[in-house]
Write a protein that binds this DNA or RNA. Structure first.
Lengths: 141, 141
DNA sequence: GCCAGAGTACTCGGATAATCCATGTCCGAGTGCGTACGG
DNA sequence: CCGTACGCACTCGGACATGGATTATCCGAGTACTCTGGC
């Protein structure tokens, strides 16, 4: 598993976009909230754009906007957008095929890994960006 | 070897230890099956030893042995041993506390993240190292 | 024949170099607005 | 007064350094077996 905070930051950014309404936000502004570099935000949003969650616009008044209703974006959608495929990557270099365990272990793990990921994604589907925005607004009062 | 495959390699190694019976295996032998460096195996097994899953022995005839019945080791145990705490790390640097989203997002995510991880771990608990060994032996016939 | 001791081979464990990935910095490409000029 | 063309500020996007982390290599510490010499 990639122990990076990409996923958390992605949720943060989408929540911020939804929180600040329909007007576009620049990567520099967003980086001020996340407390990181604008380029990191751009690269992260590029993968979210590939997942059709956001759009980018250049020039003055440009920036990033949501393409979907925040209530329709679940944490599962975000996870898939930033992590791509499986949460549990297999060996980066193939195991030894001459070992009875090495040549079968990957095929044996596909099932349990997929099952565990499905269980997790089903749980993540229960939370939407819209719900996070609602709670954030409630907390800021 | 990518850090992200630590979990898969850990399962591989434990399965191999269980497969090869009670006799200890050296890190060099194990690395031959995983197809990586012996030191990587040692460091990985060090964390499994900290979790009381394996023991190490120096000298001739030494190596690594399981400390528990393979049927009693679940994939969840392995995950906790190698990943430690949470699957979804929060921001590496704290978000901007002056932003209403930044100062609340982390506390808002703790719940959903914990819930999703619980769901995943519950699913991982269904598979044991013993079951993997059984399937590996069945496949090699 | 039996025991003690040294020697040797084997394994883990830690320290140090090399490599890889993520992050940060810089500059170019494109866009939209404002302004100035000409009709 | 109106329309057009130019210039400028702003933003994203990609190319090139930089830093930290992971990995690989090397050497030392400890252990068990084996061989040898003495009793």
């Amino acid at each position: 598993m990639n122990n990076s905070s990409r996923y958390t930051v992605a949720i943060h950014v989408l929540t911020l976009l939804a929180y600040c309404g329909p007007n576009p936000l620049t990567s520099e502004f967003i980086s001020g909230s996340v407390n990181t570099n604008p380029v990191v935000i751009r690269r992260l949003l590029a993968s979210l754009r590939a997942a059709k969650l956001v759009s980018s616009q250049g020039g003055p008044g440009g920036g990033w906007q949501l393409l979907k209703d925040p209530k329709q974006i679940t944490l599962r959608d975000v996870l898939i957008a930033v992590e791509g495929g499986s949460i549990f990557p297999l060996h980066s270099s193939a195991p030894n095929p001459r070992c009875p365990v090495g040549r079968t272990i990957q095929s044996l793990l596909v099932g349990p890994f997929q099952s565990a990921q499905d269980a997790m994604e089903q749980d993540l589907n229960r939370t939407t960006i819209g719900a996070l925005v609602k709670r954030a607004k409630a907390s800021s009062e």
